[in-house]
Design a binder for these strands. Structure first.
Lengths: 159, 159
DNA sequence: CTTGTTGCTTCGACACTCTAAATAACGCGG
DNA sequence: CCGCGTTATTTAGAGTGTCGAAGCAACAAG
């Protein structure tokens, strides 16, 4: 087996782990995996719009509308008509929404963060260089991704 | 922004790119993303069972049954009762199934493979080391993942 | 104002997912 | 061999996610 295959296997392990843990995490928060990701997205940005969410997630606006309906019904976010462009809706996370995120521990990310921070400086540097190289190899569009804040950060930022 | 965040952003870019491309790829094959992944999984293993698939994908067996029903109806795989344990069904990909996979180019993986193979030897080694380190940091279960075969490999293996 | 565009929602149709229950086969102790 | 607990799969019914097409409101350019 050549090294290309080996690297692909490692990549797949990463994808698989994140996907499986994502399901558990959402269950813990009492949301579906997709709903949870929407909530996370908005919390990270602080504020967002249906259009922006649909682009980031690669789904249609109709889908986003349906998801927002459910999340709003659960009281974790609310819609506010934009004042600068009244076609737009500003989506903001409610206190309950932030609480939901804060109460949902992310064992995967915590594991990762803990282990990452335990690395030596040169190991961290090398890992970052490699990850960014892979990201550049995969991601043709050079999209801007916000950091994955941990729930502590989200809460602090909100307060 | 500290280096932990930076590494998480890179990781997210990787996840995002693979997810979005996965949708395109499935569309090109005339299947839903989930159906395509099931077909890929079975093709890689050569043969599988509903139980094994459900574990690998992290869904219930009932879900797998529904997916297999649709894929079988489309003629890309077929079920055969196992002779050694007649409770089990062996799932095998048909010629049409292999053709479907072969006809669906994976631009993301091709991109990655091309770029990976263009790297210098020491860069490849470093990338593999980093990816495996990250995989180990995320993946608590040390699962065995098969290589992502490219469609050429699948065809060759099948013939 | 008229026209074209953009942001969002509504509607109807599928696809994915789960839980609970049913069926069938295995394997073990007696 | 019999019965019983376990395992593999399927069925049935309900909720969620997804899309395309159509509709509405607001912007923007002339």
């Amino acid at each position: 087996m050549d090294r290309t295959d080996i690297s692909l296997i490692a990549l797949r392990r990463i994808l698989r782990a994140t996907e499986l843990f994502g399901k558990e995490l959402a269950q813990a928060a009492g949301l579906s995996p997709v709903q949870f990701r929407v909530l996370q997205l908005i919390a990270e940005k602080g504020i967002s719009t249906p259009k922006a969410i649909s682009v980031q997630m690669g789904v249609t606006q109709a889908t986003v509308t349906a998801l927002l309906d459910k999340l709003e019904k659960q009281g974790v976010l609310k819609r506010e008509r934009s004042q600068v462009d009244r076609r737009q809706m500003n989506i903001v996370v409610t206190d309950k929404g932030f609480q939901t995120l804060a109460d949902a521990p992310d064992p995967l990310q915590q594991r990762y963060v803990r282990k990452f921070e335990a690395l030596k400086d040169w190991e961290k540097a090398q890992l970052i260089a490699s990850l960014e190289k892979v990201a550049a190899m995969l991601d043709a569009h050079e999209l801007d991704a916000s950091p994955l804040l941990d729930v502590g950060d989200i809460k602090r930022h909100h307060q």
